[in-house]
Simulated scan of single mutants.
Amino acid sequence: MKLSFLDPLFTEPGPWASVYLDTSRDIDDPDRAIDLRWRHQRDALLAQGADRATVSALAEAVGTDRSLPGPHGQALFAAHGHLALVEELPEPPVRDRGRLDVLPDAAPLAVQRAPDIPYLAVALTRGGQWPADEGAADEGVDEGIDDRGPGDHVRVVSATGRWPTGRVSPGRRLSHQVPIDAWQRTAPQVARELADLAERDRAESIVLCRDPDDVWVPGVLVNQLPTRLRSRVTVVDDGCVTGPGGAAGPGVLEEHVGRVLDGCLSAADERLAEDFLAQRARHRRRSEGIDAAVAALQRGQARALLLTRGARLPECLWLGIQPPQIAMSAADLEAFGVTSFREEPADAALLHAVVRTGAELIVLPPDRIPLTDGVGVLLRYRYAPAQSAQ
């Protein structure tokens, strides 16, 4: 996973105020609950020495995700009185937290965003005509609808996104409503629009949700898709599509995407993981464990850092001024002649080194690739003797 979305956090020095907040709205009086949670974190930041301008910048963005249904959260970052980044979290944080530190506390955000797989989700619903204004805000709504009884229309609802953030950061949505007797001749046009959508967003997976009793409607559509896309289609055949307000509504398509993509890696991460396994077969000690990862980052030789969810990281690592200056201890940096260094939380220090050295991050499911310490590193070049961290 590329980490360019974190660039705003590494273009200026800290101190950084970082906040993770549960902003779920599936409770009674959510605004009051969110305000109470924020006040606790605001007070924590002020107690750590955050300036009021920075805290005020954060306050303006808290709860701005009020249009999102269900459980979710926010990650917010500010420095020197300016809001730098606000990201919606597909899952609320395990606990709210506010931290002021030299480095942004961005590792939990990066982990929640992984594996960042682009997808196209399609729901096919067969039923009666829906109200004329139902879905009117969607793009591409077919207006050629007559007033017929139940079972006389096909509705196609599609949405693009990136798993797992699609539910809180949706992409393009299209909706069509077609008389059943026009489906055979209309499906090619719908398939072309879906193919364009998939190509435009570089969808690696197409999740098609259908009624298990209806094989003909989705079969007609899939057969009209380009051959290159048919191999990416996964059919969710569990009766999830039942009509308006059901599975085709906002956020629910993404739940079915999750069933398909949970535990998967993006195509790019899969390739990097395969390269890592080949490398580890030759150089195991240089490929896994926190010591190997830090050594590779010191040399600017890390192509990708692999982290298993729940990796066993040390409490802290040591950083110098320059990006490659990362070490397990202050003594290690002193041995390289580094005279100015500081202790930082290990997850923040690793992410800082990964971003600043242009490496990528792969977050692995727990049992995908067993790793010492839950950490691995794919080297950018053939192994070479260690160089100075200066």
Rank of each mutant, 00 (worst) to 15 (best):
L85P: 11
A267I: 09
D7A: 15
G239F: 04
V236N: 03
D238S: 11
S18I: 05
D291K: 05
E270H: 07
R380G: 04
E255Q: 12
A121E: 02
A84T: 06
I180W: 07
T357D: 09
G289E: 12
V86M: 11
A132R: 10
A389C: 10
G140H: 07
V102G: 04
R210I: 14
E270R: 11
A79M: 04
T54M: 08
P15G: 13
Q112D: 11
P150M: 10
E334P: 00
R200P: 00
R356Y: 01
T357E: 10
L9H: 01
G149C: 02
L36D: 15
G151T: 10
A198D: 09
I145A: 04
R200K: 14
V215C: 01
Q301C: 13
S175K: 06
V19Q: 07
T11V: 11
L364I: 10
E134G: 01
S169R: 14
L208A: 10
P324K: 03
A61F: 08
R309H: 05
D201T: 15
D65P: 06
L317C: 12
P370S: 00
L333T: 07
A386D: 07
L3Q: 11
F276I: 10
I34M: 05
R172Y: 04
G135Q: 04
L364A: 06
A59N: 12
L89H: 03
R285V: 14
L265D: 01
A17W: 01
R113I: 13
V363K: 12
L194C: 04
W16N: 13
E12W: 02
Q279E: 06
P250I: 08
Y381V: 01
Q224I: 00
E204I: 02
L46D: 03
Q298P: 05
G161H: 12
W318F: 13
D146M: 00
E204S: 09
A50K: 03
R113E: 15
A353W: 00
T227V: 15
V156A: 02
A384C: 05
I362K: 02
G320T: 10
W163P: 00
L272G: 00
R25P: 03
A78P: 02
L124I: 14
V220G: 09
R200C: 02
G376E: 03
Q298W: 02
V86I: 11
S67L: 09
T54L: 07
D142K: 00
D152G: 09
C264Q: 13
G263W: 07
Q129K: 12
R299S: 13
E288A: 14
L6M: 04
H80K: 14
D196F: 00
Q224Y: 06
L229S: 06
A281V: 12
E87Y: 08
R380A: 12
Q41P: 03
G73M: 05
P385H: 14
R162L: 01
A123E: 06
D262I: 05
V207A: 00
V55C: 01
R39W: 03
G166E: 13
V190E: 00
V257I: 06
L371D: 08
Q112I: 04
P170L: 05
L364K: 08
P108Q: 11
S56V: 06
A75Q: 04
P324I: 05
G49V: 09
F10D: 06
D238M: 09
D269V: 09
E199W: 09
M328P: 05
I321T: 15
D238N: 15
L307K: 08
F276P: 03
L261M: 09
W318P: 08
T357N: 12
S158K: 02
P170K: 01
L103V: 10
G263H: 03
